[in-house]
Design a protein around this nucleic acid. Structure first.
Lengths: 254, 254
DNA sequence: CTTGACCTTGACGCTGCGTTAAGGTGTAGA
DNA sequence: TCTACACCTTAACGCAGCGTCAAGGTCAAG
């Protein structure tokens, strides 16, 4: 079977330009040329092209492919290992870039928010910094850096309006919690309302909500005295009560 | 303070060619030219160059930098976010390349040719399709589409070597679970070893690990009879035992 | 014989400069 | 003032891997 450029191109899924270029750089020369100068490829060229495209898919440069496919004594696997090292190095550099870009984004966002309302930005920034200082390490260890960073970003992106709503909800959680404690029943109407408000409050800063994480956080309110102190300063035992309410709310086995 | 190309170049650590090129494409034009046509830069240009180099370090292309530094109304952060998406996409492609290269290396070393690799790919694809058919809806509802998709992608990208390790671990979990059940104690050494192996096994396909999700999955093993059947077919009650062991392991209140 | 599909070589474009090349300028020391 | 020598200018090619015209020749079908 013999092929012209276009036929071979269709067969292998490459453009005619590519084939002419491969001829030009001596990577894949046609078996012969007909009387009018047309490139004619045979079966051997088809096979060789398959090889070439295989290595090309792996991201190997054409010069290296030339060595691999033209010289049977050439050490293909070792070339691939070198290539793998290069790819890994590239990825390491990419990771550094990505990290830097992400840091810049949050920094820039912080700055542009500042331009908005002075007081407002100060509050939010302060809030994040406080969070980081007080609970950052703990939360990061428990939920991973990504969750915390996304939470911070979400907070910074919050509009002034939403931020007000966020603060209002926070207060409502505390108020409802106080009333609920009086009933003494975490599974009661008020207790469950508290848990629901708490979920809504969380949704302002958590990238995704899950019952497991909600229950986990509730448990942390009890285990970590810094959280416990925050809730207990209103009423002693408030943290435990909130946890129990959330456990019922999320249906987590207690 | 005024600078010629070379002085500014030394100051900022770039070549004179680079500065002339930036002039040429209108990225950074000199403040003025002296009577002989020499480029003269001032303080403003120094500052702008710093900005340019900063974005260049982040891998942003010069055309985009031009927009960012020349147009103060241009949305820098959003440009950076787009850039971040591009970088992430690049990394994804790199990961695929690396996986393929690794597959090729091990395939070549084992002297098995394309045929085997193809078979292997089909096998993995089959596994994913089965997973989707059986548990897809359930898992998607519980953990969200993104988690499942990422899990699938991770599976397809797994190198043959890693896949073998993955299957080996799966068997080891079952074996250790069987021994652990004989002890009757989920909190015992063997029970905890099972939970740890199970975590390692999960890490092959889960994009991120969290205790909550691990515990949640363990509970699902009991609640969902399809999962339960898989574990119980070895020993009745195995699913419950595994869940209890994981609850202890993750420290989740039972 | 015409038409339209297919072939050829040639050459520019893209990115971000490195690298000569050919020639003008600034300044310090003899 | 002459001269060396460092420094400046524009112009142009090269790099990887083709995409994309452009201008013109060839082949098979109707």
């Amino acid at each position: 079977m013999e092929y012209t450029v276009q036929k071979l191109g269709r067969l292998a899924g490459v453009s005619t330009r590519t084939l002419r270029y491969y001829d030009e750089i001596g990577l894949l020369e046609p078996a012969r040329k007909n009387s009018s100068g047309y490139r004619i490829y045979g079966q051997a060229e088809v096979d060789k092209l398959q090889q070439i495209l295989f290595y090309r898919e792996l991201g190997v440069d054409l010069e290296s492919i030339k060595n691999i496919v033209n010289d049977p004594s050439f050490d293909g696997p070792s070339a691939l290992r070198r290539h793998r090292q290069q790819l890994l190095e590239k990825r390491r550099q990419l990771d550094v870039l990505i990290t830097n870009v992400e840091n810049t984004i949050s920094a820039v966002e912080r700055k542009s928010e500042m331009a908005d309302t002075e007081k407002f930005k100060g509050f939010k920034q302060q809030l994040i910094e406080d969070n980081e200082k007080h609970y950052g390490e703990e939360i990061r260890a428990k939920y991973g850096d990504e969750t915390v960073d996304q939470s911070n970003v979400k907070m910074l992106n919050m509009s002034e309006e939403k931020y007000a709503e966020f603060k209002r909800l926070e207060q409502e959680v505390l108020d409802t919690l106080a009333s609920a404690i009086e009933t003494g029943d975490p599974a009661g109407v008020l207790g469950q309302k508290t848990a629901d408000l708490h979920k809504q409050w969380l949704s302002f800063t958590w990238p995704t909500y899950s019952k497991e994480a909600h229950a986990g956080l509730a448990q942390m309110y009890v285990d970590d005295e810094r959280f416990a102190a925050y809730y207990d300063k209103a009423r002693p035992g408030a943290a435990k009560f909130l946890r129990d309410a959330i456990f019922v709310y999320t249906g987590m086995t207690k």
